[in-house]
Amino acid sequence: MEIFIYSRGAVERVPPHDVPHVIVSITSSEADRARIPESPHCRALLRLAFADADAKSESIPEESLFSRAHARAIWDLVDEHLPHIERLVVHCDAGMCRSPAVAAAVAKVLTGDDTEYFRRYRPNMRVYRTMLETYYEERAGGEAS
């Protein structure tokens, strides 16, 4: 499975993928929804909203950060559609932190290699850690390696 990472602007502009795929659309608030072009090849679209931060602060409460519930939703999507898709498309506002973190964690689990995402992007470490912890503790029955 190929993984594509986009910024919000790019995912709203690029032609839809012409192979079976799923999309994880990440924004900073529930009210802010990316306008993703429709495609008959898109098997599912998961919309999530959370802040691009690693820890809570005065301006960012804990409940607005990436959570295990977000990670579970992504893993559910991947598990359900993996046998039937060729691509995972992930976007966030800039395409540099949150979406690469999701992509890196999925790549780590599926292929054992996430180095490309750390070379080319700045993955949000809260997202990356939570994705891996959720997978290994709740789905694989063990600790992250």
Rank of each mutant, 00 (worst) to 15 (best):
V22Y: 12
R120Q: 11
R68H: 12
V109N: 06
E143A: 13
E138Y: 04
I85E: 10
A73Y: 12
T130W: 08
M1H: 15
Y135T: 05
I26R: 02
A101S: 06
P20M: 10
P123M: 00
S7F: 02
R122T: 12
E80M: 02
R98V: 00
I23K: 08
C42D: 15
P40Q: 12
G95W: 00
L82F: 13
D114L: 06
R119D: 15
L110K: 07
D18I: 15
P15V: 15
E138M: 06
A104W: 04
A69V: 11
V102K: 02
P123E: 03
E38C: 14
A49K: 09
E86R: 14
R8D: 04
R122D: 15
M131T: 06
R35P: 04
L65Y: 11
V90R: 11
L45H: 11
R129H: 15
V22K: 10
V127Y: 14
I60V: 06
R33Q: 06
F4V: 12
R129D: 15
T130P: 08
A51W: 08
D114N: 08
I74R: 10
R43M: 11
S7E: 02
A101F: 04
R43I: 08
E30H: 09
D79A: 03
A69H: 11
L82K: 11
V90W: 09
E38K: 14
A44L: 14
P15R: 13
P20Y: 11
T130G: 07
Y128F: 08
W75R: 01
H17Y: 12
G9P: 09
A34F: 01
A49R: 09
S67A: 03
F66S: 08
A107G: 09
I74T: 04
E133K: 10
T27D: 03
H81C: 04
D76L: 00
P37R: 03
A31H: 11
I60A: 04
A103N: 00
N124T: 07
E116W: 13
D52K: 06
C42N: 11
L82A: 14
L88M: 13
